[in-house]
C-alpha cells in the first residue's frame, strides 16, 4: 500500500533523482505499446470466439433441417406430409419449407447467382425450430421413415459440436494470448528495469551515501517504469482500437473473420489494458529493484 501511495503521489524532486535518459525509456514504451496493441487484438479474438461459441451453441442447437429428396411431381406432397408430421411433433416450435429464393441463396457460394433451381433435382429443405425442451430426434426419425420416406433429419449435431468446441478453444487461446502478452511485458520491463538499475549503480551509491533507503530508491525506479508502461500501453491500446475500428463490418455473431470486432460495452474493455500493463510493470520493477538493490549492498 505504501508503494502504491508513493506511486500515485507525485514528488517532482524525487522523480528527478534518477537520470531521465537512456535506452530503457524507449524499450519500455515500445514494449508496452506493442503488447497493448496485441492485447487489443487478442481480446477482440477472444470476445468474437465467445460470441461464435454462444451462437453456435444456442442458436444452432435450437434449429434442425429436414431434407426431402423426391421426384419433382411428388415433392410438394412429401413436403406437405413432412410439415404435417412436424406440426404434431412435441418439442417442435415451428417448421417451414425454404422457398426457391432462400435455396438459391444457400447454393450461391458454390454455383454463383441466378441458378435455375427449378430445373435441377435439388432436395427441398424444411427449417425446424425447437422449443426449449427440444424434440425426440430418434422418435421423429422413425415417424418420418414411415410417413415421408425421402426425408432425412439433420439436427446439426454432427457439425455443431466441433464448431462449438473450436470456438471455445479459440476463446481460451485468446485469453491465453493475453496472459502470455502480460508475461512478455513483465519480462521486457524486468529486463529494462535491471538494465536501468545496473546503469545507474553510481546514482544508487550516491543516494545511499546521502541517506536514501532502499524503499525510496526502488520507488523512484518503480514509479518511472510504471508510468512509462501505462503511457506506452495507452498509445498501443488506441492504435489497436483504431485497427479494430477500421476492419470491415460483418456479421459479428456468425463469422469470425468479418465479425472480428468489438460490440457494445466490449469497446470499453481495452481501457483496462493500460492499468493492467501499469500493474504488471509495477510488480516487475519492484521485484527487479529489490533484487538488484540487495545485490548492490
Amino acid at each position: 500500500m505504501t508503494d502504491l501511495s508513493g506511486l500515485i503521489q507525485s514528488d517532482a524532486a524525487a522523480d528527478r533523482v534518477v537520470p531521465p535518459a537512456g535506452f530503457t525509456v524507449q524499450l519500455t514504451l515500445f514494449s508496452a505499446g506493442a503488447m497493448a496493441f496485441l492485447a487489443v487484438f487478442a481480446l477482440a479474438l477472444s470476445l468474437a470466439a465467445g460470441r461464435l461459441a454462444v451462437h453456435w451453441g444456442t442458436e444452432l442447437a435450437r434449429s434442425s433441417t429436414l431434407r426431402i429428396s423426391a421426384h419433382a411431381e411428388q415433392m410438394d406432397t412429401q413436403v406437405a406430409a413432412a410439415l404435417r408430421v412436424l406440426e404434431t411433433t412435441p418439442g417442435v416450435e415451428s417448421a417451414r419449407a425454404l422457398d426457391t429464393t432462400e435455396q438459391q441463396a444457400l447454393l450461391e457460394p458454390w454455383f454463383g447467382p441466378g441458378l435455375p433451381i427449378d430445373m435441377l433435382p435439388v432436395p427441398r429443405l424444411i427449417e425446424i425450430l425447437e422449443t426449449g425442451a427440444g424434440y425426440d430426434a430418434p422418435g421423429l426419425r422413425l415417424r418420418l421413415q414411415g410417413e415421408v420416406p425421402g426425408a432425412v433429419l439433420d439436427d446439426h449435431t454432427r457439425y455443431r459440436r466441433p464448431l462449438v468446441s473450436a470456438a471455445a478453444h479459440l476463446r481460451v487461446l485468446g485469453w491465453l494470448s493475453i496472459l502470455l502478452i502480460s508475461g512478455t511485458l513483465a519480462a521486457m520491463v524486468t529486463l529494462a528495469a535491471n538494465a536501468a538499475l545496473a546503469a545507474n549503480s553510481q546514482v544508487i551509491g550516491v543516494l545511499r551515501l546521502v541517506g536514501a533507503t532502499d524503499a525510496y530508491i526502488a520507488r523512484a525506479f518503480v514509479r518511472r517504469f510504471t508510468l512509462r508502461a501505462i503511457t506506452g500501453a495507452a498509445v498501443g491500446m488506441m492504435l489497436g482500437l483504431a485497427g479494430i475500428w477500421l476492419l470491415p463490418e460483418g456479421d459479428t455473431a456468425n463469422d469470425l473473420l468479418t465479425g472480428f470486432a468489438l460490440t457494445g460495452w466490449h469497446w470499453g474493455l481495452p481501457v483496462l489494458i493500460p492499468p493492467l500493463a501499469g500493474a504488471t510493470a509495477f510488480l516487475a520493477t519492484r521485484a527487479a529493484a529489490a533484487r538488484v538493490l540487495r545485490g548492490l549492498a
Binding site: 524532486a13 524525487a14 533523482v17 531521465p20 551509491g205 550516491v206 543516494l207 541517506g211 533507503t213
Partner: peptide
C-alpha cells in the same frame, strides 16, 4: 565527491533533504 551529474549543484546539495522526504 560523488554527485548526480544530471542535477544542478543546489539540488545535489539538497539531496539529503529530498531523500529524507
Amino acid at each position: 565527491c560523488q554527485f548526480l551529474d544530471h542535477l544542478p549543484l543546489i539540488e545535489n546539495v539538497a539531496l539529503p533533504l529530498t531523500v529524507a522526504g
